[in-house]
């Protein structure tokens, strides 16, 4: 009988966790950009607290930890598969389109992960009142967080092209 739990299976299992985490992360990113942000101006002032006080903090929790889990599992998969360094170098000199594609995907994903943890989250803490901020600073934080979130929505499109095309080669 063929062995089930092989090295290859572990690489697959971690890739599976990588995709699960990625769906959690990008699903919530798209929820923010496609649903929550466009709906806020339509919600009566008195009811907005339900979003900012309860829904957004929970969504942001799963969002940022989804991002963390995605990058960690992704780096493990790349390392275990032996293409981590080649992909970081964008496959330059390798003449292997899959390494170049996954490398671009990894760099785009890393920029997005950085945006989540070091731009969106610190600014959202001010917006949601988790960290004290003057009304002016709070407005500015909301603007920066919003634009970083939109940047990630834009980057998610080429990032997923790179990731998915590298996984099932057609180049």
């Amino acid at each position: 009988m063929q062995e089930l739990v092989t090295y290859g299976w572990w690489v697959f299992a971690i890739r599976w966790l990588h995709v699960l985490s990625g769906v959690m992360w990008i699903g919530l990113l798209w929820y923010f950009n496609f649903v929550q942000t466009p709906s806020m101006p339509k919600i009566p002032e008195a009811q907005r607290g339900a979003v900012t006080g309860f829904i957004a903090p929970t969504a942001l929790f799963w969002f940022r930890w989804g991002a963390m889990s995605t990058i960690i599992t992704g780096l493990i998969v790349a390392y275990m598969s032996g293409f981590l360094v080649g992909a970081i170098k964008l496959g330059i000199g390798d003449h292997d389109p899959h390494t170049t594609a996954i490398g671009f995907g990894m760099w785009l994903g890393t920029i997005m992960w950085f945006n989540v943890w070091f731009i969106i989250w610190p600014n959202q803490k001010k917006v949601l009142g988790i960290v004290a901020a003057e009304p002016d600073a709070r407005r500015k934080a909301g603007r920066i967080a919003g634009l970083a979130s939109r940047t990630n929505t834009m980057l998610s499109i080429p990032m997923l092209y790179a990731m998915v095309s590298a996984g099932r080669p057609f180049y």
């Binding site: 390494t99 170049t100 671009f104 834009m154 080429p158």
Partner: peptide, 30 residues
């Protein structure tokens, strides 16, 4: 002046434009 990313539609459009740039870059490098 507004930022192009204020519009969700423009954001998605730019995402697809960047994808075309990415495909060209992948083929240029590989």
């Amino acid at each position: 002046m507004g930022n192009p990313l204020d519009s969700l539609g423009t954001t998605i459009f730019l995402g697809f434009v960047l994808t075309v740039v990415l495909v060209l870059l992948i083929h240029a490098i590989a």
